[in-house]
Simulated assay, not measured.
Amino acid sequence: MTRGIRGATTVHENEEKLIINNTKLLVDEMVQKNNIMATDVSHVFISVTKDLNAAFPAKSLREIPGWTYVPVMCMAEIDVPGSLPACIRVMMVVNTTEEQKDVKHIFHNDAIKLRPDLVNRGGE
């Protein structure tokens, strides 16, 4: 069965290294907490808010050993007034036997505001 695993983070400025590093930290934790192997990943969508354009955050996944063939796509997040700025969101679709309620979604930095109900489950 396929399941979606959510993740989100923020950066404090539109800078290539920050975007790449924060995305990699986020994806690394998503992978670790959900016991994901690259061969189980169908695809990954990464969106960024309009204020982030210094780098493609998908580039960070290419630094993960074994992820060469995982399809990744970056896109712009909908620009909703009052939404969280400088935000990178990840939707990873994986093959898993986990129940939906057991999937661990990961939020870093100011992105914890997006889903405090999931963060309060123990940091996931």
Rank of each mutant, 00 (worst) to 15 (best):
V31Y: 09
I19G: 04
S42G: 03
K33D: 05
N95L: 10
D40L: 06
G4C: 08
T68A: 15
K17E: 15
L84Y: 07
D51Y: 10
D28E: 15
V72A: 06
N22M: 13
I46N: 00
N109F: 12
H12D: 15
V80L: 15
R6D: 11
E77F: 08
Q32H: 11
H12K: 09
G122C: 07
H43F: 15
M73E: 15
S83H: 11
T9D: 02
M91A: 06
D40H: 04
E98G: 02
P85Q: 00
D117L: 01
P57K: 09
N21I: 07
E16A: 11
S42F: 12
K113W: 11
K104H: 10
S47T: 14
L25A: 14
N120I: 08
T96M: 08
G122L: 04
L52H: 04
A54D: 05
P116L: 01
V44T: 15
G66I: 08
R3T: 03
H105C: 01
K33M: 13
H43K: 13
T68K: 15
I46S: 00
D40V: 01
R89F: 05
A54V: 12
V70P: 02
P81H: 03
I64R: 03
S42R: 11
A86V: 02
V31E: 10
L25K: 06
V94I: 14
E16F: 11
K50G: 14
K59P: 02
E29R: 12
G7D: 06
T2Y: 09
E77Q: 15
E29S: 13
M30C: 08
E63Q: 08
K101G: 04
C74P: 12
L26Y: 10
E63D: 14
Q100G: 04
A58L: 03
N35D: 12
M37A: 06
D79H: 09
T97L: 13
D40Q: 06
V11M: 12
K50M: 06
D40F: 09
T97K: 12
N34Y: 06
G4I: 11
L114T: 01
V31A: 04
N109R: 11
G66V: 12
N34K: 03
I112M: 14
V119C: 02
E15T: 11
N53C: 12
N120F: 07
R62P: 02
T10A: 04
G123P: 06
I112H: 01
T97Y: 11
T39A: 11
L25G: 09
V80A: 11
